[in-house]
Simulated assay, not measured.
Amino acid sequence: MSSDSAPLIVRIAAAVIRDGQGRFLLVRKRGTTAFMQAGGKIESGETSLTALQRELLEELGLAVEAGEAKFLGCFEADAANEPGHKVRADLFELFLDDQVAPAAEIEELIWLSPSAPEIPILAPLTRDHVLRLPRQTNEH
């Protein structure tokens, strides 16, 4: 790919998961340094919601009903783990007060307060879009 060609786009579905305290659940994949939303690539024939449900079950053991996930919009940012690529992410908001555990390729998860004094390394999508989203209420 030459330097003047457009970056490749990776289509993903990701979850903006918050708890009752307004913290965000972030994950770090094995072998990487940046924390990001749970989720992943949308496979051929999948809707973004179906991809999100599959990824959350694989990564966190979290079964999500369609009505629990509120679509927030489509956002684009540089890919955290694929140089020269951008992610185009369909983001969904979920509220969670249950415990989840990392599974599959997830090495670590954290609950991050946007006002935390020390912020870990964040994926561009998380840093530039997710943390700037207005806080929603916990009402469905």
Rank of each mutant, 00 (worst) to 15 (best):
K41W: 10
K41Q: 13
S44M: 13
G45F: 08
S48H: 06
S48N: 09
L49F: 02
T50E: 14
A51P: 01
L52A: 02
Q53P: 03
Q53R: 14
Q53H: 02
R54W: 03
R54D: 09
E55N: 11
L56A: 02
L57W: 15
L57H: 14
L57Y: 15
L57E: 15
E58T: 09
E59G: 08
L60A: 11
G61K: 07
L62N: 08
E65R: 15
E65I: 10
A66M: 10
G67L: 06
G67P: 06
G67C: 11
E68C: 12
A69F: 04
K70M: 11
K70L: 12
F71D: 08
L72W: 01
C74T: 15
C74A: 14
C74E: 14
C74L: 15
E76T: 15
E76R: 15
E76H: 08
D78S: 11
D78K: 11
A79M: 06
A79T: 04
A80S: 08
N81C: 13
E82G: 06
P83D: 03
P83A: 06
G84F: 00
H85T: 11
V87Y: 00
V87R: 01
V87Q: 00
V87S: 01
R88F: 05
R88I: 03
R88S: 09
A89E: 02
A89H: 07
D90E: 13
D90T: 05
L91C: 12
L91G: 09
L91Y: 11
E93S: 09
E93V: 07
E93W: 08
F95T: 13
F95S: 15
F95L: 07
L96R: 08
D97H: 09
D97P: 03
D97E: 14
D97L: 03
D98M: 12
D98N: 13
Q99N: 12
A101I: 12
P102I: 07
A103W: 12
A104V: 05
A104Y: 05
I106D: 03
E107P: 13
E108N: 14
E108Y: 00
E108A: 14
E108Q: 15
L109C: 04
L109E: 02
I110S: 07
L112N: 04
S113D: 14
S113W: 02
P114T: 03
S115E: 12
S115K: 12
A116G: 00
A116V: 03
I119G: 02
I121A: 11
L122Y: 01
A123M: 00
L125H: 01
L125G: 03
R127V: 02
R127C: 08
R127N: 11
H129G: 09
V130E: 08
V130G: 10
